[in-house]
Design a protein around this nucleic acid. Structure first.
Lengths: 208, 208, 208, 208
DNA sequence: GATTAAACGAGACGGTACGTCGAGTCTTTCG
DNA sequence: CGAAAGACTCGACGTACCGTCTCGTTTAATC
């Protein structure tokens, strides 16, 4: 959760085992029971830990789930596969697979829902989960520019906002498909979506 | 909840006022307290109605909220403004405004979250809220084709799937922007997004 | 607990069965587990009732136990046995038997202990349990005076205070013997105590 | 707690300051919060001591309170004031004053209550608190016999039992008056009670 | 003066019960 | 019969203490 090298505080130190067991228990309970069925008491039992121990570390279900789920997103990566289309399809496939996991399925939407009322939680979700993924767009664009598939950026500020819109679009489309519609992201859908994005990215002057 | 013209049963008829009062109360409670803070008891009190009355009409919190929120989406419409860009921007603006309302803000995500575990609810949400909006894409494409901005469909099946992807992309981008990121959809963002979509739609063979 | 004939209020009336079951459960739990081992949750389970139902009627363990125990004291009575000694021994024997019951044993002291910090509870205990027993002293004195064993009262105020002291002495001696010392009130002890009291009562001017 | 001259073991010796601070803290916490409100953690904090230190000395709340309270009773003494009445009144006054202290008020009854379920504790309470006070009765009787106010003992066994009953009666009456009824032991009440006891003691043949 | 073993503070730990709250059902009386 | 009122069961909540358990840190007696 934070500074790895905290000076040795007084008293009995917190058990690292407990931390791990709790997060694991949270993920498995989440997958089995969904957000609504997830209870702190149950997580404590699964983790073989007292409820108090759980509350000592996380003030509420929300923060616990953020931490339990955030780690899943760290595995996303942008592998340079030689073409922009291949890269886009790969990252969409990864993201779709992640959202299709039962533990993220229920957790993410509920987390977003809670976050919509709790600015602190929203910040936490964005910092721990959302924003880190923008790096994927940056990496993909840089690779494509190196290959000559995309033109170079002119204005850095403009580039940043472009990245934002592209990220919103890709993330949003997959989220909507998987989480909202509840349909799977088939190869055909991914291909079609990649086609759409390629056209969009390679023809920036489509307007006016 | 349904059959508008049920034959007049025996005994005291159900009060139509109550229905209206309950849905209004649900929406306002939702806006004030969010999904988590919404209680059936509170809705009953706000509506000046007994809890029993409430349960007599809706079997649970979820279905009640679906009905309370669904009506908001009926107001979306695709006005032909003379150009595809204008039409896209207009519909995105409407959708963004809708999602920015406090009562939908909290409700939608929570509804989607519940739906992710409850197939019946998911179907209900899709039928009442999501799918009806695809008509907007159909209307917009038809108008643009009439204007010559887009080429005509060749294969109807292909067209259907294309509409799906486009709908997923537009809806998803706005949802992500507003609900997940929690940022407003500024005029600049909308313009940028419209540019992206125009490029995508008008250059279908962007790949290879 | 209160007016037997409350006008029929609206809503579902409280279940009389529940009241009875709860008080019975309280007494049996008390006898088995003692005050310290008595938990509201356990009482609820034994009574086949939800914890909420229990709290709806009694705000805390204390008041519940007062009500559960008070009824035991209603059975005490002063039977005119023909002599003051016999009457004293009989009432002491009854009181001792009552205090020796496992359910009163633990409950009374704990109740008195709580009452020592809570004036409202103390009043409740006195009104429901203690003071009603003073009637026994009054009855016994009246009978003895009728028999000529005791001289008649001269000053009614003086008589009242005398009754108080006698009551304090008798009740206190038995309480101390049973509850504090934890020894049984054997026939020998009762006889000896009766002798002491007779001497005290029949020689009011023992001092100078 | 015991053996004043334990052989000096190795390692750091226990702090005598801590012992004192803990007992003081216990008494003051008891007076302020009563038995129910007394927590080990709070005592530890008040005493400026770790909870561990506390448990290292006393196995539980009960034993701690016994020790904390017992000392108060050591101050009771029977001063030979020249007449049995004066002696009785003096000792009753002392005892009443002791029971009126807020720290004993709450502690004693709760202690008795606990003891009623825990034979070990009961023994401890009797040995540390109750029985030592019987010496007062012995002393008073001896003095009165020396003065000729009371006849000499004939049978030592009979004398022992007589002392027991007298002690039960005096202690019980004061306990009931102060702890159970919650009324103060006024000079008038003490005088009246002394009269009663004098009559009882000086007319042993009241029966038959 | 160094060693050493126990006492110490701090505080995390597994538990148990607390009293409250919301969901959804059931049982009254009134209109 | 519908509606209002409110009691009902159930189960999770988050808190408070319990008594135990590490930790790292004194502190006196012994070597």
């Amino acid at each position: 959760m934070s500074e790895p090298a905290t000076l040795p505080r007084k008293g009995r130190p917190r058990s690292a085992d407990a931390d791990r067991a709790i997060l694991d228990a949270t993920r498995s309970a989440l997958a089995e029971l969904g957000w609504g069925g997830l209870t702190m008491g149950d997580v404590a039992v699964r983790a073989g830990v007292a409820k108090t121990t759980l509350y000592r570390r996380w003030p509420s279900k929300n923060e616990l789930v953020v931490d339990a789920v955030a780690v899943l997103f760290d595995e996303l990566e942008m592998a340079d596969l030689g073409s922009l289309r291949a890269d886009i399809e790969a990252v969409v496939r990864q993201f779709a697979a992640l959202l299709a996991l039962p533990e993220s399925q229920a957790a993410l939407l509920a987390l977003f829902a809670e976050a919509s009322r709790d600015p602190a939680l929203r910040r936490r979700v964005r910092e721990a989960i959302i924003d880190p993924q923008k790096r994927l767009v940056h990496q993909g664009r840089a690779a494509a520019q190196a290959r000559g598939e995309l033109s170079a950026d002119t204005d850095p500020e403009d580039a940043r906002e472009t990245v934002d819109v592209i990220f919103d679009t890709i993330a949003g489309a997959v989220e909507h498909r998987i989480l909202v519609s509840g349909e799977c992201a088939s190869a055909a859908w991914i291909s079609r979506f990649a086609t759409l994005m390629l056209a969009a990215l390679q023809n920036p002057a489509g307007s006016v």
